[in-house]
């Protein structure tokens, strides 16, 4: 800062010995800084535009060579074939099956853990368990993939063998189960937050009538927090749809149209990883198919998000 009396705050003095009140300099520094900050914030819009633009432009280039009809209705996905087959159904089925298996684990487990944390667990317990669960979600997904392929699959294979069944080395079941466990912290944490923000008065009303904690939790707290809990579920679904490494490692790299989780399959995300790590030249249709696949994934995610938003609005309780 400059010496006394000469800073931007006090431009000299006037006849009464005080600083004049009329606006002196316009303080360019302030305006420049504010613009810089605004650009930083606005960059988020540019990023979204960039994502949408890339997906759409490249997909359009893709659909110049491949037929949209085949894309949507064809059952074979084989970009390496001659001629290549681009039916997205098998990738979509792979994505949906792994997601469903994951949610079969994540939603019940996550919800029960959330209710337990919010309604039953002592504060000390909650304060240890909640961060520990968050630690679980902080583990990189490659590690989960390793675990799925090299621990869960052999374990499941041993289990299946006990009953006379076999399980292939790559299968959607292991990947889905591990993915489910990975998503539990998201669902549990958000649901618990939603339930904790339900006012105690509502609980007390139910308890005063002689309800047990369980009844209060199920019939009062859970419905009241439904909006937040739905948001948690939607987040879990999005997470599962977009998950890449676990499925790429453990579910396989063969696109197959099947709803049997014990089979190998390829998800949209695993496909993208496979192609971009490979040898196909940049301008080829096979390469561009990853953008079309990515666009499909975005649309699916968006559909769930919007659906979730509408659902939340229906269930939003005001208290």
């Amino acid at each position: 800062m400059s010496n006394a009396g000469r800073s931007a705050n006090s431009p000299g003095t006037n006849r009464s010995g005080h600083t004049p009140l009329k606006r002196g300099r316009l303080r360019w520094g302030e305006k420049v800084f504010e613009t810089l900050l605004m650009l930083a914030a606005a960059s988020s819009v540019l990023i979204t535009v960039g994502i949408v633009a890339v997906l759409i432009v490249e997909s359009m280039a893709f659909f110049e060579d491949a037929s949209l009809r085949e894309f949507l209705t064809g059952a074979t996905w084989a970009p390496g074939f001659d001629p290549p087959a681009f039916g997205i159904r098998s990738l979509v089925s792979g994505t949906l099956v792994t997601t469903t298996v994951a949610l079969f684990v994540a939603i019940p487990v996550g919800t029960i853990v959330a209710v337990w944390l919010s309604e039953y667990a002592k504060p000390k317990v909650r304060e240890t368990v909640k961060p520990a669960l968050e630690l679980l979600s902080a583990i990189p997904t490659v590690v989960f993939g390793y675990f799925a392929l090299l621990f869960v699959t052999p374990a499941l294979q041993w289990l299946f063998a006990r009953f006379g069944f076999s399980l292939p080395g790559f299968n959607m079941l292991s990947a889905g189960l591990v993915m489910g466990v990975m998503i539990v912290p998201y669902i549990a944490s958000l649901s618990e937050d939603a339930m904790r923000s339900v006012p105690t008065a509502l609980r007390e009303g139910a308890l005063a009538m002689g309800a047990t904690k369980f009844q209060t939790a199920m019939k009062v707290v859970f419905p009241a927090a439904l909006s937040g809990i739905t948001a948690a579920y939607i987040l879990g679904i999005s997470r599962a749809l977009g998950e890449t490494m676990i499925v790429a490692i453990a579910a396989g790299q063969e696109a197959k149209f099947t709803f049997d989780p014990t089979e190998q399959a390829q998800t949209i995300t695993a496909f993208i990883v496979q192609i971009s790590g490979g040898d196909l030249p940049h301008e080829s249709t096979g390469y561009r198919s990853i953008f079309a696949a990515g666009l499909t994934l975005m649309i699916m995610t968006l559909a769930f998000n919007v659906g979730g938003f509408l659902l939340r609005r229906r269930y939003k309780e005001t208290y």
């Binding site: 705050n9 006090s10 006037n14 006849r15 009464s16 005080h18 600083t19 004049p20 009140l21 009329k22 606006r23 002196g24």
Partner: peptide, 19 residues
């Protein structure tokens, strides 16, 4: 004694708060 209007649009609030 200067006669300025504290809430005038041409008056700098920062300068006002200094005084």
């Amino acid at each position: 004694p200067d006669g300025d209007n504290l809430i005038g649009p041409d008056v700098d609030p920062i300068a006002v708060r200094m005084r």
